[in-house]
């Protein structure tokens, strides 16, 4: 087995993005601009992000499953990218492009696993089963966390620490009340206000409607 000493890796490409792969709201903005104005710069940016996301998506899945080959990785990345490129003019919600790409990748991965299962004869206990309830949390965890933090930062200052303690640290209302020195009823009111704003947050709703809607 040979190893390349001068690696051209995913970082080489992702370094050229003006934002992180996990900042879904930024690529959604870029896609909205591309669909509205059809500028070449916007298309290049969207294509670059799409390739990086798709590659990272399947890289994560392949790291988890040791039985998949590197050649299969290149093939499925290409197939997924072309599917996204072909189907995206028909997207209705342009501001949910990142979440739509995530769903396309997931469907392709499900088909890939099913096809592979049919081709390769394995004992039943070795056949990898997809946990449908995971909904790609292993791939999108950083992006989801980024969306949550941005949603918290867009709250009024007096709600932010409560939102952090409740929705990031998962503390109870009573614990939060003791920490901030207020009554439980006040914390409940704060949480109520926070939830109301989260229901209006575009990126959280994009994830909820696109990826987690049952």
């Amino acid at each position: 087995m040979s190893y390349k000493t001068d690696l051209s890796t995913l970082e080489t490409l992702a370094a050229r993005l003006p934002f992180s792969i996990d900042e879904s709201h930024r690529v959604n903005e870029a896609f909205v601009a591309y669909m509205c104005h059809d500028r070449i710069e916007d298309k290049r940016l969207v294509d670059l992000w799409t390739y990086c996301y798709v590659r990272r998506y399947f890289l994560i899945k392949f790291i988890r499953e040791a039985r998949y080959q590197a050649s299969e990785l290149d093939q499925i990345v290409e197939k997924a990218y072309r599917k996204v490129e072909h189907a995206r003019p028909g997207i209705i919600h342009h501001d949910r492009y990142a979440q739509w790409v995530s769903v396309v990748c997931r469907n392709m991965y499900v088909n890939f696993v099913a096809r592979r299962r049919a081709l390769v004869t394995l004992p039943p206990e070795e056949i990898p089963e997809l946990a449908p309830e995971e909904r790609d949390a292993d791939v999108n965890a950083a992006a989801l966390h980024t969306s949550l933090i941005h949603a918290i930062e867009s709250l009024p200052p007096f709600l932010r620490s409560t939102a952090r303690m409740r929705f990031v640290e998962n503390l109870s209302n009573e614990e939060i009340a003791r920490i901030i020195g207020k009554r439980s009823g006040t914390v409940r009111a704060y949480v109520h206000k926070i939830c109301k704003r989260f229901r209006e947050d575009r990126q959280l709703c994009a994830w909820a409607d696109r990826v987690y809607r049952r």
Binding site: L144, H145, L204, A208
Partner: peptide, 13 residues
């Protein structure tokens, strides 16, 4: 769905 989204958003930490 939003509840599950928020629950998954905590997983990274």
């Amino acid at each position: 769905s939003l509840s599950e989204t928020l629950a998954q958003s905590r997983r990274y930490i």
